[in-house]
Amino acid sequence: MDVSSVLVLNQNYEPLNVCNVRRALVLVFRGKAEIIEAAAAAFHTASSSFVLPSVIRLVHMIRRPRPKIRLTRKEIFARDGWECVYCGRQTRDLTLDHVMPRHRGGPHTWENLVSACRACNHKKAGRTPQEARMAMAVQPHVPRVSVYHAFFPYLGAQEEWRKFVPGWEGQLAG
């Protein structure tokens, strides 16, 4: 088990973020947080021993903006299921394709970017899909992001976190 990461919960038990053990211990010792779940490991000093936290809860409520998913290659590929939108081939060797080419005024946005295999991207070239006579299996869109999106990668190893992160079940299977 990885004891270097600690789940930080808001006062109402909503997951806020993930921090390292040192930061979590500072929050606990200053009275700003309490330990909800302990890790199996302990921190030893010359005179005492402290249980390491796995999940902490803040004493005071923190307001934060809702997360937005960043427009990156990896997120475009994940949105499109790691497959080419033109031929449907699943591969890890994908390229980004602008539906309306950049040189013709196409923006660099979620609605204009899709995953394409190298062969389809080369075939389409600087044309629109209609001009190249290539149909897209799905239309590009802005993906909906879960408030808990940032926590899903940790849930495979951190079983004690799962009860605090709604919707994790479908993320581990997929």
Rank of each mutant, 00 (worst) to 15 (best):
V147S: 06
C120T: 08
R57W: 09
N112G: 10
V99I: 06
R104C: 07
A132S: 07
T72L: 15
P67V: 05
A39C: 11
A119Y: 15
A42C: 00
V51Q: 06
R92N: 09
T109R: 04
R57P: 04
C117I: 08
G105H: 08
Y154N: 00
A119W: 15
G88W: 09
G106W: 00
R89I: 08
A150E: 14
N112T: 02
V145F: 02
T45Q: 12
C87A: 01
A46G: 04
T72F: 11
T95K: 10
C117G: 08
H98K: 04
S48L: 05
R66D: 03
P129G: 11
Q130C: 02
T128W: 14
Y86Q: 09
Q139E: 02
P67A: 14
I69Q: 10
E111A: 13
H108I: 00
A38Q: 11
A125M: 03
A119F: 15
N112H: 10
V85Q: 04
S115K: 07
R79K: 14
D97K: 14
L71V: 13
A157F: 13
T128L: 10
L71D: 12
V142T: 01
R66I: 12
L94R: 08
G81P: 12
G81V: 09
A46Y: 06
H60E: 11
A125H: 02
A42D: 12
K123W: 01
G126E: 06
T91Y: 01
K123R: 11
I56L: 07
E75R: 14
H141L: 07
A132C: 06
M134S: 09
C120H: 03
H141F: 15
F152P: 06
H98L: 03
A39S: 15
A41H: 12
P153H: 07
Y154E: 03
P65G: 14
D97W: 08
G81I: 13
A78L: 15
N112Q: 13
G105Y: 10
I69C: 05
R63T: 08
A135H: 01
M134V: 10
I76F: 08
T109I: 00
L155Q: 08
D80L: 00
I76C: 05
S49C: 02
C117H: 11
T95R: 13
H98M: 11
H44E: 05
P129W: 02
R102E: 06
F77L: 06
D80S: 15
M61N: 01
V55E: 12
T91H: 01
D93E: 06
F77P: 00
I56T: 06
R133Y: 13
G106L: 04
L96F: 08
R64F: 09
C87K: 05
E131R: 07
G88R: 09
H141P: 05
R104Q: 05
V142K: 00
F50V: 08
M134W: 07
A42P: 00
P67D: 13
D93V: 04
A38H: 02
K124Y: 04
I69T: 07
P107Q: 14
E75W: 00
R63L: 10
